[in-house]
Write a protein that binds this DNA or RNA. Structure first.
Lengths: 204, 204
DNA sequence: AAAAATATTGAACACCGTTCAAAATGTCAA
DNA sequence: TTGACATTTTGAACGGTGTTCAATATTTTT
């Protein structure tokens, strides 16, 4: 009958409401200021009631993580405009780095925070992450087809490329680039990426 | 007179006692379980008294971070045995990755946790970090002298190289390599690093 | 021995995630 | 409509966290 349907709908709406509140708090005050109690406050429910909709805080963070990936993926696929596979890969990295700098809290949730890692146990449980990774792999396959990365395994290069840009962004977000004057930070980060990729731009 | 001297010595000893307790808790229970109250408990003082010796928790973490770097640096310089600069660089990366995997809590404190980043504002305030980075730069300079990384800036390649290995370790520690079966994780990580570095092994 | 300086305490403040008995609300058959 | 049952929501309680600060205890100096 319709009652169960409505209940299900209500439950879904409540979940959305909770996640919306969580997103707003994370955006306005920063991810590290997010708490169950603040969400409850915002939606005018008691803290305990959140647990009727989510198992725990980690599950909420996992949902935020999925949401962030949605936004991230949309930014990533913009590089498809570029025809040359190698230059596309270069822009791929640049877009990645820019996203991290411009959306520190989203980046945090996607790649740094522990919580989602506990939910993610295998590739099937991380479709959002896989989708973005597969898109990178595609780009690198195109590079291999064009004669680059001779003798290298597709997976290896993909993981290395991802690690390179993640390393740049996460060291930046954790203020570990103390050797670089603040005003030059972002150009130097992009320069480092360029240097690496330029050194890989050779056939055979 | 000797009284002030003894007091200074006592204060230093107390600081060491606090840090020793902090290190033990972090080692035994994990860094995320470390707290002021636990330290106070261990040394049989009240929580408040810790604040007579350290400004706050961040200052304690900063000291732990310095300590971790000491251990890390000692591991790093072992690569000096290798004569060929490029193969030395390869081992440099391998040792870095291994250290991260084998000492997750130390790695966390050195490169992932926010706290030290707030103390680190410039290169002079991060001598421990700089020492290790300079050692990497030296190795890369040797590679450049040997004809590798043609047309690239020393600093850029160094930052990129560091970012690459940090990316690998930190994605691993945060369980973001869900696409890799657990049993293969470590060899695949090393393989990814090898792929990248092999693609950079060419002169001119 | 008294006074001044210093060190230490621990309760208090403002938070946190999570649990759970109890109260409130909603559903449904009689 | 009423009473029984099911569901939802509450909010206090538990065990944590970092930090502050008036009060107490100890040490040093006079």
């Amino acid at each position: 009958m319709g009652i169960q349907d409505r209940k299900d709908r209500d439950k879904e709406e409540m979940k959305k409401l909770i996640l919306q509140a969580a997103k707003e708090i994370s955006l306005e005050e920063g991810f590290d200021k997010l708490s169950i109690r603040k969400i409850a406050d915002k939606i005018e429910y008691s803290p305990g009631s959140i647990y009727s909709y989510f198992k725990n805080m980690d599950e909420i963070i996992f949902e935020l993580h999925n949401d962030a990936f949605e936004k991230f993926y949309k930014k990533q696929i913009q590089v498809n405009d570029i025809k040359d596979p190698f230059e596309k890969l270069r822009e791929h990295g640049k877009v990645y780095i820019r996203f991290g700098i411009e959306n520190p809290d989203l980046y945090e949730i996607m790649f740094i925070v522990k919580a989602p890692g506990n939910e993610i146990e295998s590739a099937n449980e991380w479709e959002k992450g896989m989708k973005t990774f597969d898109f990178l792999k595609q780009n690198i396959q195109e590079c291999i087809d064009a004669g680059y990365f001779k003798g290298s395994d597709l997976n290896s290069i993909s993981i290395a490329m991802w690690s390179l840009v993640h390393g740049i962004v996460s060291l930046y977000l954790r203020k570990r680039f103390a050797m670089i004057p603040k005003d030059y930070l972002i150009p130097v980060m992009n320069g480092a990426f360029d240097s690496m990729i330029n050194n890989m731009k050779h056939k055979g």
